[in-house]
Amino acid sequence: MAVVSSRSGRLGNRIAIAVVLVITVIFLSPIYWITTTAFKPLVQATSVPPSVLFEPQITPFVKLFTKRAQLTAPVAPEIYEAAPWWEKLVLDGGERLARDGNGEVVFSAYPDRFINSLIIAITSTILAVSMGTITAYGFSRFRVKGEADLLFFILSTRMLPPIVVAIPMFLMYRAVGLNDTHVGLIILYTAFNVSFAVWLMKGFMDEIPKEYEEAALVDGYTRMQAFFKIVLPEAATGIAATAVFCFITAWNEYAFALILTNRRAQTAPPFIPSQIGTGLQDWTVIAAGTVLFLIPVAIFTFLLRNHLLRGMSFGAIRK
């Protein structure tokens, strides 16, 4: 496998590369398809045969952010002329934008859900990573009674099926008024991610030589100063990688959000599919919502590429 010297070996190598390329194209085609759908004219999104060539347009994104109604009669030319370019795109498609009493464009629910997702994912990430980092330091540097059992307990909370936890959480949150609140979801996502953060950060902490801190202690630092001034900067890469993983998990989470939120604090994952099934489906708008939602994850995946293995194995496999 590794030793490729013979002619047949080189040929085999070329065939393998060709196969890998073909598989990569097949693997990426669903993502390509949803992305292009977000830029298609409505009629071409569901045309038979599927259209591969089309004139890209951003109408679906305009529609995604606005509330619209079917045009019952053609718009008067002077109104059409006065409309901004993005409104013309919608008018061309036979719809008009809904406006409130002051004539302002009414936004759809999507931006709110997107912002909810951002608030909840970012806050829970900060909490989970902070707690995970200090706890990992505790486990890494000090003798903790029943360490193996505690670490197993911590990881096992991560493995619980969301629906199983959601049943009592729903009842408890209802009792204390945390259903459909940002705080409620933030707490749950923090609990879900903190176990992961502890495991991943413990690996990173174990890699920092403890001589660094001991030298600092000898130099007159307290242990807390050594932790903040020596250990944390050393662990920066690990903290960043852990944070990105926690963010992606919280960003993508569906089951808890579906059960524990419905309007005010609803995040994008339960919202995006709920647009389906209400009358005629505009797949271009759903695709636009999906693409915007996937962009942060795609960017983070590239930033994380060297840490994916480690994160996916809870820090156990380090390469």
Binding site: I23, T24, F27, L28, P30, I31, W33, I34, T37, T46, S47, V48, P50, I248, W251, N252, E253, Y254, P269, P270, I272, P273, I276, W283, I286, A287, T290, F293, L294, V297, A298, F300, T301, F302, R305, L308, M312
Partner: peptide
């Protein structure tokens, strides 16, 4: 490798949704 790893980072519910589009019987 990074491109191939992309699918597993995506939100399962959103993946399910856009595969619905791919699986649609008529178009």
């Amino acid at each position: 490798t990074t491109l191939l790893l992309l699918p597993m980072m995506l939100s399962p519910v959103v993946v399910g949704l856009f595969w619905k589009l791919i699986y649609d019987p008529s178009w």
